[in-house]
Design a protein around this nucleic acid. Structure first.
Lengths: 331, 331
DNA sequence: TTGAAAGCGCTACCAG
DNA sequence: CTGGTAGCGCTTTCAA
């Protein structure tokens, strides 16, 4: 920056102002910009952050980048913050809370302006770290009863119950559930609990739960899970799956077995992924606006940052995201 | 850090050494660590980077985070660098070179230690910026004839030719290609060119190319593309698709039309995504080790960083990644 | 093994 | 509208 200042015949401060878009006369601005371009000068963001006391980072933690769900949420978040010149600091927790804690710890070293993380379950240390950081925090994809700060999401358990009711309304009475075996996918567990609760509430007999494969469950788990379900409860007339991925795997297994969907057995998914409307038959599912969750989370964070600057503004604490049962051909 | 030093009765330097794992007596180390834990002190990485002159960042640019291809590559890269305490600075270019340029510009402000980006096509400004930054750079998923620095990938065009030969060997003679309409997915275009070249080389008549949907092509484009293909060339006996996603969409459309795959028409994909072995029928495809590309790219970057430290080491410039035709049921 | 001083490259603040 | 000064929180370097 000294070099630029010297060559342009101005002070470092003026160069800094040109870069930040401050009050500089048109003539000076052009002269400085010309030197910057010629030199290919790139300002050091670390020095800027240190000096100004605030970084451009927004820390974002998702369980997996591979899931279209979460990558859509990241895109939404990114779209919300991009106009403000903020940088995403993205971390993939691989569905593990200890990994989340490690990432939070490491990201906090960069003094992010705010943090977005997924779910309502975190280690105690994570909560402490975030509260002590004293920056806006938003939990996504869930509605925590005891939020760290803000939250943008929905009740996965209630959404699953809505699907059971839908199947019940369609006349199905022997409804099974396919989910993952592990404890990692908390939202998947919530969906399973919702299924169990609603099956009991409707008096549909003992819950028929099959848990195959380490969470999160993917396409490949759908086939063996369906097999296990039909072996244990051969008279099952409908099956809801923890996600569209496993629903798809189950449907392909039905093709293989010559079972007609939904005539021989109905199949429902969760998430409204692309596969749900591209597969044959199209998959009945719960639609959740993953991109919208990211967008709203970004808005909440930006509002909180703005509110902090203007002191004592009222802050949105919770944004409920709508979900809907999308009837298609599979159930 | 001053607070920690004062409370522990040592100098700031000693605290810094404890954090960095330097030479500190066991007793002192424990005392300092205790104060750090009590205070919940988190060192400022920006200040550290400024002072030491080097950051912990590895800048990574992919066309899309939603594609399992690229998220696997990111996971591989992440796995390679994690043991060295480096931080991923991740950017999604949305397949647009101008977006890539903007992200490179913005990430370079954080003085990353090295950069990984996707493909061999970049704006001139991107190339200049990266060369001027004078840090290790690796281009992934392609084999540039004029690399910026290093590269880890394969020839998408040759891979596509291999698939045409496979279909030819299986006896198919009227082979079509389904790809995207735009110019954005450069690797998709390379595959299409490879298809055209091999069809001509084998004397299979005029290429049968259908381009539907803005690139990158997804599941939903497969169905209309197959429709267009059969309308234009009704006697087509095999179709290869730019990716497994569109192959899947095409196969589902075959189900809808009552066409048997591969008896009425064979379908091949590209990428060996999960859907390729979970769908019915399973999809013949080209398998590429996406995770391995990330891993090898990370290794190359680390080696380059090491080589820089030890001066004049020979550096790996190009890593060729293997691909194989995986015969399954669809072709 | 520990400490003191200098300074990384930038921006806040105040003067002009 | 522009410039000078101070200092952000750490690490490097050298000395003890």
């Amino acid at each position: 920056m000294s070099d630029v200042a010297r060559l342009a015949g101005v002070s470092k401060m003026t160069v800094s102002r040109v870069l930040a878009g401050g009050n500089v006369s048109q003539a000076t601005r052009e002269r400085v910009q010309k030197v910057i371009d010629e030199l290919g000068y790139v300002a050091d963001a670390a020095a800027g952050a240190l000096s100004s006391g605030r970084s451009d980072f927004v820390a974002v933690l998702v369980p997996s980048l591979a899931s279209s769900n979460f990558s859509d949420t990241v895109r939404g978040l990114s779209a919300a913050i991009a106009p403000y010149g903020l940088q995403l600091l993205l971390g993939d927790t691989d569905y593990r809370l200890e990994q989340e804690e490690a990432l939070v710890r490491s990201m906090l070293r960069y003094q992010p302006r705010c943090v977005a993380l997924t779910g309502r379950h975190h280690t105690e240390a994570t909560r402490t770290l975030l509260k002590r950081a004293d920056i806006p925090v938003v939990e996504m994809w869930d509605l925590p009863s005891d939020p760290i700060d803000m939250s943008v999401g929905f009740s996965n358990s209630k959404a699953a119950r809505a699907m059971v009711r839908y199947l019940h309304d369609k006349g199905y009475r022997r409804i099974g559930f396919l989910g993952g075996a592990g404890e990692l996918d908390r939202r998947g567990l919530d969906r399973m609990r919702g299924y169990v609760a609603e099956v009991k509430a409707l008096g549909l007999g003992e819950p028929r739960v099959i848990r195959v494969g380490e969470s999160p469950v993917t396409m490949s788990h759908g086939a063996p899970a369906l097999g296990a379900l039909l072996e244990t409860w051969p008279d099952t007339d409908a099956v809801m799956c923890v996600s569209d991925m496993s629903a798809f795997g189950a449907i392909m297994e039905c093709h293989r077995r010559g079972l007609s969907v939904p005539n021989d057995i109905a199949v429902a998914g969760f998430g409204d992924f692309e596969v749900a409307w591209c597969s044959y038959p199209t998959i009945t599912t719960i639609s959740v606006d993953a991109y919208g969750i990211g967008l709203r989370a970004g808005d909440a964070l930006l509002a909180a940052l703005g509110a902090i600057e203007q002191e004592g503004q009222p802050r949105t604490r919770t944004v409920k995201i709508e979900y809907t049962v999308v009837p298609r051909d599979s159930a």
